[in-house]
Each structure stands twice: as structure tokens, then as C-alpha cells.
Design a protein around this nucleic acid. Structure first.
Length: 276
DNA sequence: ACGAGGTCCTGCGAGC
DNA sequence: TGCTCGCAGGACCTCG
């Protein structure tokens, strides 16, 4: 599922769009649209030139020469693929939005479950939207003091807290599981009850995991694809996610799994991450 | 202010 | 074999 590393990978792969014009938008489903009608989206994209493609949290932001931004949030099964030839095989189905790109390429948003969303915001609306999202954990100015303060302000389980986009941007279920394992923190521990040494450890673990995942072009469990339609490689480096019932890579204890935190699959080593 | 639970959406695997 | 059912989950919403 596209989290920060997957969206970052997609955005890097979409850089050839910069300066190119889009045309002939084809939209097969309108249920992915948020705050924009099909007519307005198509009219805004048709003939628009891409000024910049960037990432914010788990969003792909395509800034157009009109100043409008087309925002794609892939969520579970969304994929944005830039290709020279028309998509075929597994990628051909489930296309939601297809655009012709100046120079002969195609940009396709495909989404099997269509939990992903597409919106269109002007500069002001985008600024409001992005101001409500927490800091970027891979940014140089990601501040550990602010991170500590954010965690100290909630009694939520630490795993739920780091997946809260208002507190920190881009962390989803996979990397929350991985970062907590690396930091040796019990996922169910209330965020404001972390030990003093836990916060810097978690801060470093999140950055380390996300950076490594970006270098592997993300994690493909099932549907995620890069911006060129390839699979990521970080699934081979996961230590806990999707490894329930298998031995902990650190101590050999069988990994436990629970859905007690926000109903989401949480896998951890009770020995390495236990609350003593 | 918190936790619990519903909603969106479709494919897949389990169970009968 | 062919059906139904529950689950997967990120963000957002309502309710108590």
C-alpha cells in the first residue's frame, strides 16, 4: 500500500512529466473524485502543462501551469504509471484515469479497490490542506523536539500515533510495524508513556526504515507498483510486517500478531518489544 | 478528548 | 464446483 516510500518512488518516476502538456483525459469512474466534478477535472487537465510533480505525505501533487494542483492519494491499491506504450495485461484493467502526455507517453491512474482519491485544489486550498498534515520525517528539518511533543500529547497507542498524519506525515501500517520493531517499542504502549530513550530511538528508526524503503523503491505486497509499473523490493527486507508466526530475526521468538490497535494488523516480537 | 465502530471498494480465501 | 461471507485497510465520519 503506498506509504511515503512508495509515493516518493512514484513521484521520482513521474519527473519526465515536468514541462509536458496533458490531453485527452478519460475517466472511467467518478467515485474516486473528492471535491471536484468529472467535468471540471477533465477540463482542468485537458491541455494543461505540468509545472512540477512532488510528494507531500502519501499524496502525489501535480502542479499545473494554471496553478491548480491535481492531488492523487493512492491509498490501498492505487498506482500512477507513466508508460510509452498503452498499458497491457495486469495494468490495463482497473484504469480509472488515463491521460495522453505530450511526446507520446501515457499517464494512467489505476486502482483496483478505488479507495484512492483524486482532487483538484488551487494554491490557497492546497496550503490549507497541507498545513493540517504533520512534518515530513525525511526532511532535514524534521524536529525531534516537536516529534516528542506531539507524542507526549496523546494517550493513543504509539503505533496509532505514528500513523496519525496530523502528527507525522507518510507513515502507514507497514512502516509503523517495522519502525517499532527496530526501535524495540511495544506497539500498544501509550504514546505519552514512552521511556525517555524511546523517542530518539523511534525518531531514528522511522527515518532509517523510510530511507531504506525509498532506496528499495517501496514494498510490493500485492498491488503497489512504481511509476514505471515495476514492483518494489523492500518486501524482501521486512522484519515483522507480513511475518506473523515466523521467528523474530533478532531473537528467534515467534512473532505475534494482533488487530487490537485500531483494527489493523500489528505484528511484533513480544520479547524484543515487550513492555518490561 | 477519547475509543469504538461504520463507510468507501473489490478481490481473495475460507468454509460449507 | 459454486456459492456466501468476512477480511484487507487509510482517511474520514459519527456516536456515546
Amino acid at each position: 500500500m503506498p506509504e511515503l516510500p512508495e509515493v516518493e518512488t512514484i513521484v521520482r518516476d513521474l519527473q519526465p512529466l515536468t514541462g509536458r502538456a496533458l490531453s485527452n483525459p478519460r475517466l472511467s469512474h467518478t467515485d474516486v473524485l473528492r471535491g471536484v466534478t468529472a467535468a471540471r477535472l477533465k477540463a482542468s487537465l485537458d491541455g494543461a502543462r505540468v509545472r512540477r510533480v512532488s510528494r507531500r505525505a502519501k499524496h502525489v501533487v501535480m502542479e499545473l501551469d494554471s496553478g491548480l494542483r491535481a492531488i492523487v492519494q493512492p491509498r490501498m491499491t492505487g498506482a500512477l504509471i507513466l508508460s510509452d506504450a498503452p498499458l497491457s495485461g495486469e495494468h490495463a484493467g482497473y484504469a480509472v484515469l488515463t491521460l495522453d502526455v505530450e511526446g507520446g507517453a501515457r499517464l494512467t491512474y489505476r486502482d483496483v479497490r478505488r479507495l484512492g482519491t483524486i482532487s483538484l485544489l488551487d494554491a490557497e486550498a492546497w496550503n490549507t490542506y497541507t498545513s493540517r498534515i504533520g512534518p515530513e520525517p525525511l526532511a532535514n528539518d524534521f524536529d525531534i523536539g516537536a516529534f516528542a511533543a506531539a507524542l507526549g500529547g496523546t494517550r493513543q497507542a504509539i503505533k496509532k500515533a505514528i500513523m496519525d498524519q496530523r502528527l507525522i506525515a507518510g507513515v502507514g501500517n507497514i512502516y509503523a510495524n517495522e519502525a517499532l520493531f527496530v526501535a524495540r517499542i511495544d506497539p500498544s504502549r501509550p504514546a505519552n508513556r514512552l521511556a525517555a530513550h524511546d523517542v530518539p530511538r523511534l525518531y531514528r528508526a522511522i527515518r532509517k526504515i523510510l530511507d531504506a524503503a525509498v532506496r528499495s523503491k517501496g514494498t510490493t505486497v500485492r498491488d503497489y507498483r512504481t511509476g514505471t509499473g515495476q514492483r518494489g523490493a523492500f518486501q524482501f527486507k521486512l522484519k515483522v510486517y507480513d511475518r506473523a508466526g515466523r521467528p523474530c530475526v533478532r531473537c528467534g521468538t515467534w512473532l505475534s500478531t494482533t488487530h487490537a490497535i485500531d483494527g489493523r494488523q500489528t505484528t511484533f516480537c513480544w520479547r524484543c518489544q515487550g513492555d518490561a
